[in-house]
């Protein structure tokens, strides 16, 4: 039982970073109704921007973090302009494949500058807490706190500001949003930038927990985010959070009880089962609308 709870705790901590990735995914999906496969790779670019400053200038945590976020935002906007803004409306498949092409491009661009397999990333904290019979790693705790704070900020932004109202209006009905006088193109761009900020923070937290980065981070982040978003229900932010935490817990439990080689297998099996039996995700009822839209032809 102690083991089970310990795994659940670990899973929730790690899952908080998955939740951030899923939130970013869901924001983009919400305003675009299209899949941005390049989401992870653009975060990867940000993480490498951070690493570059760390290796070359021995920059501090804050500078590295800032570089990561700025890099992710710039790459995210590049993706938005080329794969989404420029591609004709109604051509969702073209956008998706285009985002894949840009993924390949970003990944190779990074490996040209960083030819080795892994590079160091500055750690956030190096302490471990003991709470009763349970252990909590410092960087996990910081990760969880940062993710929670960021989620609260995002919630305030979406539900308390005019800009948040515009994002939600575009997500629910872009045509109606235009009738309100909302500049939908601009809102989409800002939503991408916002998703990239969230992704950049997630990338920074994950990289500093791992204390290293690899060009494979892009692939990893895209699929973690995609799975977590689907588990929770596409287009729903509470769903993204729940999906991220669930994925973290599933992974932690399967590593403990079945072994590392079963971690992804179990995660994919749960994902598949969700798609078959509960395609709307954890919050199937609430996001019925989003699910219908997701099921539309891409």
């Amino acid at each position: 039982m102690v083991d089970f709870i310990q795994n659940t705790l670990d899973g929730i901590f790690i899952g908080s970073s998955y939740a951030l990735l899923a939130i970013g995914f869901t924001l983009i999906f919400g305003v675009m109704r299209r899949l941005n496969l390049s989401y992870g790779p653009s975060i990867m670019l940000g993480v490498f921007a951070g690493t570059l400053l760390y290796i070359q200038l021995n920059a501090g945590l804050l500078v590295v973090g800032l570089a990561t976020v700025v890099g992710a935002v710039l790459a995210g906007l590049y993706v938005e302009r080329i794969c989404f803004w420029a591609v004709r409306r109604g051509a969702a498949l073209a956008s998706m494949v285009s985002s894949f092409a840009i993924w390949m491009q970003l990944e190779e661009a990074v490996t040209i500058v960083f030819p080795d397999r892994t590079y160091p990333f500055p750690p956030l904290a190096d302490f471990t807490l003991k709470l009763g019979p349970f252990w909590v790693r410092g960087e996990h705790l910081i990760m969880f706190i940062c993710a929670s704070l960021l989620t609260i900020l995002l919630h305030l932004l979406l539900y308390r500001t005019r800009f948040g109202l515009a994002i939600r209006a575009v997500s629910e009905n872009p045509t109606a949003a235009k009738f309100m006088g909302i500049n939908t193109g601009l809102v989409v761009m800002f939503a991408f930038a916002l998703a990239s900020v969230i992704g950049g923070v997630a990338g920074y937290l994950i990289a500093s927990t791992d204390q290293q980065v690899t060009p494979l981070f892009g692939l990893w982040a895209t699929f973690k985010g995609l799975i977590a978003m689907t588990l929770g229900g596409m287009g729903s932010i509470p769903g993204a959070i729940a999906g991220g935490l669930l994925l973290g817990v599933i992974e932690a439990q399967s590593v403990w009880y079945l072994g590392t080689e079963y971690r992804d297998l179990v995660a994919y099996a749960v994902l598949f089962a969700f798609l078959v039996f509960r395609p709307g995700g954890l919050f199937a009822q609430k996001s019925a609308m989003q699910s219908r839209l997701a099921a539309r032809r891409v």
Partner: peptide
Amino acid sequence: LRMRGLYFAIGTLAFAEMVRLIFEI
């Protein structure tokens, strides 16, 4: 059969990764 649009894409992705991971063991 019941999955449409993105759900089909992600469903087939999950299936293929399961197949690959099963071959891993």
